[in-house]
Simulated scan of single mutants.
Amino acid sequence: MSDDDTKSNLPALTRQVNELVLAGSLQHAEEALSKAADEHGDYAVAEVLSTLPPQVTALHLAGFDGAKTSVATLLVPPKAWAESLAYMAATWPDDMIEDDPERIAENLFNHMHGVVYATDDEDRRHELLAEASSSDWGATAFAIVWSLAPKEILEVAGEINSRGPQPNIVTTSDSDIVPLAVDLARASEDGWQRSLLELFPEFRNTADLADVELPEDEDEAEEFPHRTTRELLYRLRKQVPSVRSTPKRSTRRSMGTDIFS
């Protein structure tokens, strides 16, 4: 099939995927994308994913993490993924934010890890991380993940401040969050710093933050000033852009909530 034929099919495929996701048929949306990849190539799928409204992309990708295979996870363009991160907050139930914020943060980490490490392409990985951390909501999303291991993040900050973002940085913990933090610092120094200061808002810069030593006593360490996971989850909620300012708007209320109104 020619490039012109492929391009003429993209609007129809975009509408199809959009409608399937809004209907809750994520698996059928994946099947449509997979079929398009087989018939028209990965570029066509990436093009469709780049034209979906970010709230629809968020709803779609929220159904997948590192444990589930997803064509969208493999091929979502960095900019489209970055824009969708704000809308992830709309997929979280209010009662879960109150009762189990750490579980939401862990799910967000699984999602981010699944997208960033879906392939071995280091250039794509760095582009994903740089784009995702370039916005206010992106910095907050990373801070939500860092809030699961603030002590380890402080250790990483100290190591990066003294040695640079070396891939072999280790901490006293074997947390899976550490490699993601190091890769973010390697991909975008600005994004890394913004995410740190989002978690630790009392500090003016990361140089000061990197010199901080946490108390040995775990109870005292918990008193170290940083935003809690719950606080950051609500903070991201407030950063969700209104769909009224988004030209690629669905005529159907997509999430069953007024957060996009």
Rank of each mutant, 00 (worst) to 15 (best):
E31K: 06
E31A: 08
D65H: 07
A37T: 08
K68T: 07
H40N: 13
H60A: 03
V56S: 00
H60Q: 03
G63R: 01
V45W: 02
L33Q: 09
F64I: 05
L61N: 06
D38F: 15
H40M: 15
L33W: 08
G66E: 12
L59A: 03
P53H: 02
D38Q: 14
A29V: 08
V45L: 04
D65G: 08
A67G: 07
V45N: 05
D42F: 11
E47T: 12
V48I: 05
D38A: 15
E39A: 15
S70D: 07
S34N: 09
K68H: 06
A29M: 05
P54I: 07
Q27D: 07
S34L: 14
A37R: 12
Y43G: 15
A37K: 09
L49D: 03
A36S: 12
S70Y: 03
L61D: 03
A67T: 13
T51E: 04
L61V: 05
A44H: 14
L49I: 00
V48Q: 00
V56C: 01
A44Y: 14
H28E: 15
D42P: 12
T73R: 15
Q27P: 08
L52G: 04
A58T: 07
Q27C: 11
E31S: 12
S34C: 12
H60F: 08
V48G: 06
P77Q: 08
H40D: 14
D38L: 14
D42G: 15
P77H: 06
F64N: 04
L74H: 12
V71C: 06
V76N: 01
A72C: 07
E47I: 10
Q55G: 02
V56W: 00
V56N: 01
A67K: 12
L61H: 06
D42W: 09
E31Q: 11
A67R: 14
V56L: 00
V48K: 00
T51A: 14
S70F: 05
T69M: 09
T57E: 01
Y43N: 15
H40K: 11
H60W: 10
V76R: 05
A37V: 13
L33R: 10
G63T: 00
H28S: 15
P77S: 05
D65C: 06
S34M: 10
V45Y: 04
L59F: 00
V76F: 03
S70W: 05
Q27G: 13
H40S: 12
Q27E: 13
E30L: 09
S50F: 03
A72P: 10
H60P: 07
A36Q: 05
A37F: 11
G63I: 00
L59C: 06
V45R: 02
T57Q: 00
T73P: 11
Q55E: 10
L33A: 15
L33K: 09
P54F: 04
E47S: 09
V45P: 02
A32K: 11
P53S: 01
K68Q: 03
A32V: 11
A72M: 14
A62S: 12
K68F: 05
K68S: 01
D38I: 15
V56H: 00
L59V: 02
G41H: 02
K68W: 02
A29Q: 08
S34G: 13
L61A: 06
A46F: 10
